[in-house]
Amino acid sequence: MSDRSTIADAFADGPAFIPYLAAGDPSYEASLEYVEALDRGGADIIELGLPFSEPIAEGPTIQEAIVRALEGGMTPERFFEFVEDLEVEASLVCMTYYNLIYQYGTGEEGPRPFVERAAAVGIEGFVVPDLPAEEADPLRAACDEFGLDLIFIVAPTTRGERLERMMDRVSGYVYVQARLGTTGARDDVSDQTGATLERLAGYDVPKAVGFGIKTGDHAERIVAAGADGIIVGSALIDIVADGHASGAAVEETAAALETRARELVDGAARGAAADGNVPEPEQP
């Protein structure tokens, strides 16, 4: 277990808010503004997506964001420049698929050149949705060498030995997948989440819950159920996509993102105040 990055600190003062955006969606410049707006809105950690052409773990919302980002010219090298250009307080985690990590550099050194470059621009950790613990040792070794965290996704189906194997290799936080399926905003909160959090209760690593969180109320209930952080992607990308489709000004979309970020941060804080008790759903 590594705790050399500052990622674990993000969980020290109450629940962490962890937004996700695809870097370069819909353009390099606009995307910089959007990420910085989320930082102003209270992000503790930001998961930045480096778009891959075959995102098998993503639902339609993030797939479309990835298409927009790729069409806008995003590449691994542009991504690193993007990170250098960002002015944010939050810790930065790179979320991408293994082929892009693997192909960076000469192709003979495995994931090391990518991790080295990521560390140099200030990335502090990775989430790689198509890299289960069984295949992760080369990336784990490179992360250890450069002091980065490797975050694993725990699914509702993850149990027993597989969970142990993952917990042996995880650092920073675990990404608790709230429900089966692909990413995407939902209108309800899954009861699979509580069961997964219970299985993880004995492990001394922050648990951040993602997949389907959309509103401050969701955030409140998830944190009250025992989460140490909330990960929100598709609900924010919906705002980016709407702004792009309607031709709204970048500042307008950025302001909407910042507002939603504050709503989610407030919801998470209410959940923490509930002290582990799941509040009753609000009456209309």
Partner: peptide, 12 residues
Amino acid sequence: GGQYVPEALMPA
């Protein structure tokens, strides 16, 4: 070869 898939599919 190998098994490069999302975690949710690993138990399957």
